[in-house]
């Protein structure tokens, strides 16, 4: 097996498995630490519906940032939405319900947003004071993955990406259709998946606990 066969044929499974495992591990870890002190922050949204509404609104508008930190909101909101959008439309694309163009658009936004936030973190004196290498690295990593993804989704080999990913899903990855830039994108994307739940970007899990288990605890 060549290196590129391994990267395209085996590594994606390892990356996804590690990502899921690490996420689950952190989720279970925090689940095993119930809050012993009731550190509720009032008001608590009424009922499950109220909490769901608050959470969804915050997730899909970034309202708190919008209200108080508009400059960062432009970057952060676009970045997160583009991330979700890229994943969502890529799945649609694989299913044949979307063109790759929408995915590329999302990736482009993601790259620009990452660069914008890096710039803001260097330009704004308070953000500069608070940021360390980790924040900038995470942004650059994410931006890099998106940029490579963008490059890889350009129509070098028409249809090849789709064939490859469909093969991955059916557990018969056809690695021969991929070009070097594809391999690189898959590799970097895989590394990012492994890194994500181990980094402080795990906030997609921690948020559940800080809101539901701490802020909204009523007993």
């Amino acid at each position: 097996m060549t290196g590129s066969e391994f990267i395209a044929g085996i590594f994606p499974y390892i990356a996804v498995a590690l990502c899921l495992l690490s996420t689950a591990w952190r989720f279970v870890r925090w689940l095993s630490l119930p809050p012993h002190v009731k550190w509720t922050l009032y008001p608590v949204p009424e009922g499950i519906a109220g909490q769901l509404k608050y959470m969804l609104k915050e997730m899909f508008t970034f309202e708190t940032l919008y209200k108080f930190n508009r400059r960062l909101w432009f970057g952060s909101f676009s970045m997160h939405m583009a991330m979700v959008g890229a994943a969502l439309f890529f799945i649609l694309y694989l299913g044949g319900w979307s063109t790759i163009f929408v995915v590329q658009l999302c990736l482009l936004v993601l790259v620009i947003a990452a660069i914008y936030i890096i710039g803001l973190r260097i330009y704004d004196k308070n953000l500069r004071l608070l940021s360390n290498f980790e924040e900038l690295f995470n942004l650059a990593f994410l931006g890099g993955v998106a940029a490579l993804g963008f490059a890889a989704s350009a129509p070098h080999v028409p249809g090849s990406l789709r064939l490859y990913f469909l093969g991955l899903i059916e557990l018969h990855p056809n690695t021969s259709v991929l070009s070097t830039v594809h391999i690189l994108a898959v590799f970097l994307g895989g590394l990012f998946l492994i890194y994500l739940p181990l980094s402080k970007m795990i906030h997609y899990v921690s948020k559940y606990f800080t809101y539901h288990h701490i802020n909204w605890q009523k007993k």
């Binding site: 012993h36 960062l72 308070n126 924040e135």
Partner: peptide, 22 residues
């Protein structure tokens, strides 16, 4: 036990967005 959940999440995941300054 009292503090390990809030401390691990608070200390582990702050995104340094600086919203708190406002």
């Amino acid at each position: 036990k009292i503090y390990n959940l809030p401390l691990e999440t608070y200390l582990g995941t702050c995104a340094k967005c600086n919203n708190c300054a406002e």
